[in-house]
Amino acid sequence: MRAIYITGFMGSGKTTVGRRLGELLNLPVFDTDEHVSNLETMSISKIFASKGEKEFRKLESDMLRSLPTEDCIITTGGGIILAEENRVWMKENGHYVYLYCDPGEIVQRLAGDESRPLISGDKKKELLPLFLTRKSLYEEAEFHIDTTSKSIEVIAEEIIKSIKIA
């Protein structure tokens, strides 16, 4: 089976849903952020602070291409879609899934989370413009799943049904 790439804005549930999907399908799960962080031996926030967003995006793209394209789940960072070559890679090498979540719910989910390098301080002010600039890029995905007010179990089942892996 082709890889399942899970994309979406921060707080949409990519990592949690990916883990559950891996359990249900008995497939390994690779998280691009986690792999980049391990490779660089520092948190994503520290990579942004010390090397900048441009270098992080390069590391992220390189990581995406280094991961398997068969029999696995790959959860991505929210900004991986900024590079057209990443969107093309996911379309060509797997099932490309976008997890949508209402921005109001994302603000609630991220309340108190200071680990996100692109939003700090008044998250509500910073989050919506960032979400809107990325929305059309996320929507290029083959499958769209709304995670707003849904359980992890329901979301995982919707992904399985959408890509017809029953």
Rank of each mutant, 00 (worst) to 15 (best):
S66Q: 11
R20F: 11
E23D: 15
P103H: 06
E158Q: 15
I155M: 06
E139I: 02
I160H: 04
L24Y: 07
E153W: 01
L110D: 05
R109E: 05
E34L: 11
K161S: 15
Y100E: 04
T133W: 13
V29H: 12
I47G: 12
I47H: 06
K164H: 10
D33P: 02
I74F: 06
S162I: 02
T32F: 05
G22I: 06
S120A: 00
K161H: 12
L132G: 10
G79R: 05
L64P: 03
K14H: 09
G78M: 10
R65C: 14
S43L: 14
R65E: 14
V17E: 03
F9N: 01
M63N: 01
K51N: 15
E85N: 05
T133N: 14
T15A: 12
L110T: 14
T133V: 11
G11R: 00
N38F: 07
M90P: 04
L110I: 13
E139N: 09
G94T: 00
V154S: 11
M63E: 14
R116C: 11
H144L: 10
G112K: 05
M1I: 01
K150H: 13
F131R: 01
S12C: 07
E53A: 10
A166R: 14
M1Q: 03
K51D: 12
K164D: 13
L82A: 06
G13K: 02
L118C: 04
L82D: 10
S115Y: 13
T41P: 01
E158I: 10
G18Y: 02
T147H: 08
C101E: 08
D62W: 00
E139Q: 10
N26T: 15
E105V: 09
K124Y: 12
L27N: 02
Y98V: 06
K161D: 15
L24T: 08
E53D: 10
Y5I: 07
K135G: 09
T69A: 06
S151P: 05
R87E: 02
K91C: 00
T32I: 06
L127D: 02
K164G: 06
G77T: 08
E139K: 01
H35M: 13
R87F: 02
S12A: 15
K164W: 07
E158T: 07
S115K: 12
E92C: 00
T69V: 09
I44W: 07
L137C: 10
P129C: 11
N93P: 03
T7H: 01
I81C: 04
N38K: 15
D122W: 07
F48H: 08
Y100R: 07
E53N: 08
